[in-house]
């Protein structure tokens, strides 16, 4: 069935216009599994397919561009897989001084790496530009962890973020993002300490991007995107590795 869907999508993709295909291999000790994500541009948006071990999803995404004022993307996703059906609704974007991200979904059990949440999951993130250089944010999330978080970001050359959150216990949020080096590479650091302990770092070089995540209780990952090749490895209660490649057309 999975193979038939794959060939159907591939056939459709060659017949239709713009699209992308992301194929990968996800490995945990003693097992390797393929992952596949494919998307086709339609007149009114995009249709996509996601297939991973034990679960698959079909989705439709639309978007609305407001030129220099903003952009909104929205969509719906239906899933089949082990444990039963699932689905999600999502919308994200910004207009003028407001940026909003909303997501609500359900799946009976997680299916790594493409479907990490289980049960009822959701996320609402709202950011408001108080002044040209100041942004306040509010985040409510129920997913791999449940948390509520409020932040204040100030841009003075670099962007400094200070905030507080709660995930059973309260935690502190510190962030720094700015251009480093002569090539204006971007370094993005976020540290959460307390009820949630996590360091997230991203270095964006243009042709390549590097990522690092470290959490306590111990979990972590390192990753890189070099052009259209994605490499990721880490530990999430068990070691894992994930290699992906994206083809785009035309």
């Amino acid at each position: 069935m999975r193979r038939a869907l794959f060939w159907l999508f591939l056939g459709l993709s060659s017949a239709l216009a713009q699209g992308r295909l992301e194929a990968g291999v996800y490995g945990v000790p003693g097992a390797l599994a393929p992952t596949l994500e494919a998307a086709l541009a339609l007149e009114a948006g995009e249709a996509y397919l996601r297939l991973g071990p034990g679960r698959g999803a079909l989705g439709l995404m639309g978007s609305l561009s407001l030129g220099p004022l903003g952009y909104l993307a929205y969509g719906v996703q239906g899933e089949v897989g082990e444990g039963g059906l699932g689905g999600a609704l999502f919308a994200e974007g910004g207009a003028g001084p407001i940026a909003l991200e909303g997501r609500l979904g359900y799946r009976p059990q997680e299916a790594l790496p493409l479907f990490p949440e289980a049960g009822l999951f959701g996320r609402v993130a709202l950011r408001y530009r108080l002044l040209p250089k100041e942004v306040v944010g509010l985040l409510l999330e129920r997913g791999e962890v449940a948390r509520a978080e409020a932040t204040y970001a100030l841009r003075e050359g670099a962007t400094y973020t200070l905030g507080a959150g709660a995930s059973r216990l309260p935690y502190l949020v510190l962030g720094w993002k700015g251009e480093v080096g002569e090539g204006m590479e971007v370094l993005d650091l976020a540290l959460r300490l307390g009820g949630l302990n996590r360091l997230e770092a991203g270095l964006y070089l243009g042709e390549a991007s590097l990522f690092l995540t470290l959490s306590y209780p111990f979990a972590g990952s390192v990753g890189a995107w070099v052009g259209d090749l994605g490499l990721e490895g880490g530990y999430k209660g068990f070691p894992y590795a994930w290699v992906r490649y994206i083809w785009r057309w035309p």
């Binding site: 030129g67 903003g70 910004g94 940026a99 950011r127």
Partner: peptide, 17 residues
């Protein structure tokens, strides 16, 4: 169109934009 708040670069064909 680059949007600072969402850090997105939206690229559209001219006729669509």
């Amino acid at each position: 169109n680059y949007l600072y708040l969402t850090n997105q670069l939206i690229i559209s064909p001219k006729e669509k934009a």
